[in-house]
Nucleic acid binder design. Structure first.
Length: 569
RNA sequence: CGGGGUGUAGCGCAGCCAGGUUAGCGCGCCUGCUUUGGGAGCAGGAGGUCGCCGGUUCGAAUCCGGCCACCCCGACCA
């Protein structure tokens, strides 16, 4: 591949909208270009790097016994309606109609499509287990695409689906996929931390996320410092380090609190801590108000609330919605005597005594409130978010919060799709039973961005060898010198014979520009052919990762480069 | 969806508040000469519906309205 001919359109300056290293460098190094918000085109080098990541994924999936398929990107609505996700998905699903008015969506994932295929094949226990995967472009109309490839709307993902006759066999496959993912991350030079995760819209009983620790990660992770507990904050369990305070034990009392709608104001006015106040956050779900009660010093975790409500179709009550519910004393809503409104209570509110809450009457709060005596905390659910200082629910150790990039997620689905889509198998006795399923995703375009995020310096990308778009760049300094050009072409051909692709910088530019572009593009080895060829018959080779340079005799250069590559990170 | 910001040459930006010749700068691009081991020099040159539509005005990149696109923050404390 030649550097000229707009093959590698590098940019000297940082694109105005790039916020992260991977976003900036993938564009500046001429690997990709934006097409629309959260949608990117891959240029030759970017497409090569993506292919290398995807080939590692393919390799490990095949090694684990999975079979590759190619499913459609445009999905008919029928199976999605059958599974219930046509309704559950909300605006994140990109929907459209064809000329006949039939409804379709751009596949955000493919459980429905694959499960209906298996269902129609009416397998017997002899046909199972099976694990089918594809590596393909997905579309999710994200609320806010961010950080280039990191959170795109259109993105590349490997998605795999396994089908089993028993829970035990699903467990075995789950472990096999876990192992495959560990290998994939390792081969791509990514450190991972595996945590328990929410199953969200995919559903299922158990799931693990593969996280790459990073400050730009969008997920908050919780790890116990004493045991092996690790979880995504969106579903973690914790034990509070403190008990909700007893600010005013005793009888119920109404207090005039004019205009005090925040926890801070109320706690301040009552001369007590926020740990003594019950916080109420109002949501609207399916046109119905939902009052969520949590300890005053905590926030509502919307991901946990979504698990409880069984949908993510809810939002905090907006100003314009408040007037629709005249019975709600917004700002002063409390659990005592609150009728006709759906409620959710955080587990921490069970059995509290002597606490403060809204009086369901404007400008009034109640003090001395006691659960059971004054209200019943039902339904009870863990809907509050974790905080620094909370304790591990398993061992009581200190919990540590950090950030991570989710590159993979594996799920035990159970019967979530096989039942509604009627995917059954006949067992030994001829009885029909629903197939037990698992699903396993890994974001290949996100992994590409993550690799750049983890492997770069001020000058540019430092591709680990396994995912580098090409292993070697050859730079000729004297583009007018026939000997140098001839040597470069010969070396390129020799390396090609050894299966090593070359990016050949054939441009007639100042050396500095070519060196800087080579560092920016970041191929593992740079071979520089210049005047030393004529003076002492050598070419220089620089290892991008270490910055180390050495001179090789031109005759043995191809051998030495092959050897140097074996040693490169 | 709410709030904020931006949109001027391929990229990065100035000009806009206080409307007034041919709309500027840096990088990149083209031609020629010189140069060539870490972003060269000189000379010449090309490239713009100033996001789109409408309005105000003798006159609009600049003021006003609408729309679109992109970016940031938020989606949460009632």
């Amino acid at each position: 591949m030649r550097f000229s001919h707009v093959t590698v359109p590098t940019l000297r300056e940082k694109p105005a909208d790039a916020e992260t290293a991977s976003h900036e460098l993938l564009i500046r190094a001429g690997m990709m270009r934006p097409a629309a918000a959260g949608i990117y085109s891959f240029l030759p080098l970017g497409a090569l790097a993506l292919a290398r990541v995807e080939n590692i994924v393919r390799d490990e999936m095949n090694a684990a016994g999975a079979l590759e398929v190619a499913l459609p990107t445009l999905h008919p609505s029928e199976p999605w309606i059958q599974s219930g996700r046509w309704q559950a998905y909300g605006p994140e699903m990109m929907r459209m109609k064809d000329r006949q008015g039939r409804e379709f969506c751009l596949g955000p994932t493919a459980e429905e499509v694959i499960t209906s295929i298996i269902a129609r094949s009416a397998p017997s226990y002899r046909d199972l287990p099976i694990n089918l995967y594809q590596i393909q472009t997905k579309f999710r109309d994200e609320i806010r695409p961010r950080f280039g490839l990191m959170r795109g709307r259109e993105f590349r993902m490997k998605d795999a689906y396994s089908f089993h006759t028993s829970e035990e066999d699903l467990d075995r496959e789950f472990k096999a996929m876990y192992g495959a993912y560990v290998s994939i991350a390792k081969r791509c030079s990514l450190e991972t931390s595996v945590v328990e995760a929410a199953t969200g819209l995919i559903g299922g009983s158990e799931s693990s996320e593969f996280m790459v620790p990073s400050d730009i990660g969008e997920d908050v992770l919780v790890h116990c410092e004493s045991c092996d507990y690790g979880a995504n904050a969106e579903m973690e369990k914790h034990r509070p380090a403190i008990k909700m305070g007893e600010a005013a034990a005793g009888s119920l009392e109404e207090v005039h609190t004019p205009g005090m709608t925040s926890i801070e104001e109320v706690a301040g006015f009552m001369k007590t801590a926020q740990t003594s106040v019950i916080k109420c956050v109002l949501y609207v779900s399916g046109n119905e108000p939902v009052a969520v009660f949590v300890p005053g010093y905590r926030d509502v975790s919307e991901s946990k609330l979504a698990m409880h409500l069984g949908t993510d179709d809810f939002h905090p009550m907006r100003e314009d919605e408040i007037e629709r519910y005249p019975d709600l004393a917004v700002g002063f809503v409390g659990p005592v005597g609150l009728d006709g409104v759906k409620t959710v209570f955080d587990s921490e509110l069970k059995g509290v005594k002597g606490v403060i809450c809204g009086a369901n009457r404007s400008d009034y709060h109640l003090r001395g409130v006691e659960e059971e005596r004054d209200f019943n905390a039902e339904p009870l659910f863990d809907v509050a978010s974790v905080q620094e200082g909370d304790l591990c629910f398993k061992c009581g150790g200190a919990l540590k919060l950090s950030r991570g990039i989710e590159i993979g997620h594996i799920f035990k689905l159970g019967l979530k799709y096989s039942e509604p889509l009627n995917a059954v198998f006949s067992d030994k006795s001829g009885e029909l039973k629903p197939i037990i399923m698992g699903t396993y995703g890994i974001g290949t375009s996100r992994m590409l961005a993550t690799v750049v995020e983890q492997h770069h310096d001020e000058a540019g990308i430092k591709w680990p060898r396994a995912v580098a778009p090409l292993p070697v760049e050859i730079i000729v300094l004297g583009t007018e010198d026939a000997k140098q050009v001839e040597t470069a072409l010969k070396l390129q051909a020799d390396l090609k014979d050894r299966g090593l692709g070359v990016l050949y910088d054939d441009r007639d530019l100042s050396p500095g520009i070519k060196f800087n572009d080579a560092d920016l593009v970041g191929l593992p080895l740079q071979v520089v052919i210049g005047k030393k060829l004529a003076s002492d018959g050598t070419v220089d080779v620089k290892t991008r990762y270490t910055g180390l340079k050495s001179a090789f005799e031109v005759e043995s250069a191809a051998d030495m480069i092959t050897r140097a590559l074996d040693e490169a990170p």
